[in-house]
Design a protein around this nucleic acid. Sequence first.
RNA 1: GGCCCCAUCGUCUAGCCCGGUCUAGGACGCGUGGUUCUCAGCCACUAAACACCGGUUCAAAUCCGGUUGGGGCUACCA
Length: 432
Amino acid sequence: MIRVRFAPSPTGNLHIGGGRTALFNWLFAKAGGGKFILRIEDTDKARSKKEYLDEILYSLNWLGFNWDEIYYQSQRFDIYREYADKLLKSQAAYIDKTKGDAEAVIFKVTPQKIKINDLIRQEIEFDAKDLKDQVLIKSDGTPTYNFACVVDDATMNITHVIRGDDHISNTPKQILLYKALGFNVPEFAHLPLILGAEGGRLSKRTGATSISDYRKMGYLAQALVNYLLLLSWSPGDNREVIEIEEAIKLFDIKDVNKTAATFNLDKLNWLNNQYLKKIDTQELTGIIIPLLLEKKYIQEDNFDRNYLVSLVKLFQGRLCRINDFTEWADFFFVKDIVIDPQAKDKFLTKDLSKEFKLFVERLEALDNFDISYIEASFRQMVKELNIEAKALIHPIRVALTGKTIGPGLFEVIHYLGKERTKERLSKFIKKE
RNA sequence: GGCCCCAUCGUCUAGCCCGGUCUAGGACGCGUGGUUCUCAGCCACUAAACACCGGUUCAAAUCCGGUUGGGGCUACCA
């Protein structure tokens, strides 16, 4: 039975790299019919915080990585102590008193060659002579990372340790401990790191780093997961948009790349747009409603959901991030629209009073305000005026929306409604 | 410094294991053109890479060695 674990430390939010490690562990478990275990590495009492723990659990859920079991290292200190005593008894470890009265337990490293058989990188060899004796239990009584990790992975029957590249050099230290404790050594797979745009670790300087940041910026969990999946893995047939269910079928840890990947926001944006196009409009509306409430564009118990769905449909295909909607569709919600100065300069410098006035009259005369009727009426009018349709379409769009870009004009007019359309156009009609 | 990992377009990658089918394929981004109304949407096209040196071989992106470059670790952090 395959058992893998993801072991975050609640000393910060779940970041992109952690999300990717969780993804590959979860995928490996799903692909092999195994269990995905979550282990909270909260041995550092000073740096671990409840808010970080909550955030990590929330983000993991948001990404869709449900766990089968959860453990907290802070509740297992007696177990680590027990195994430390065992090593003390077998003389594999000794007590160090250099720090005042407090006692630390130190593991004795003996000269030997240590081989790792990595699932992604094949064989890696280390020489124990490069290793110092390892602290197992610190003088404050808490276990060190490498020790707690080994005791947990062994006692939780973890079969495959899938983690970041940065742990490669911890692995020989851990293997020594497995052997000294008489545990079976699990399989290892070390994932390449995700680098920031300027090389080196992904840092706040080079952009957002936490999963929550991306959620708040308006990325869909499916898109982010898909993007993370593509960072160091590929199905091999040039496909890029891969739903998670499909990935479970295709995923093989052996196909994971060895090369570090650079995080690229452009591609994530593109993928997000791909998913935004596919997502059910009702569902997307449900995600957007809280954003509109927050902006006070709508009131809690006083909005027309069907109308919102229609508006969302209008923008859905061109959204890059969910939050773009509140910006691009603002003119549907505010009374006094903000007119982009450049748009005004480009399309509203000429006096179009006569044309606007005529159009208002034509709209007024419409009994049926459906999109096709609005368009027919408009086309008929420009034909009579003997002007190009676009010579009037762009100015009207700017007058109604304040922007030069957006959905088709007749859709905009239809959903804005007769009254608001008249009102906004009238502002650009000079009084006689 | 020591130890370890890695190396294909700007970025993500396919190809590498099992050398010839690779004048190296796809995607993002960039550029250009088109799109009965805009584009940050859609369509089409263009430019763009095997880090370097040596070896093995009839033949190397692919195998081997070295160099260079990048990254990681080197804590009584995790």
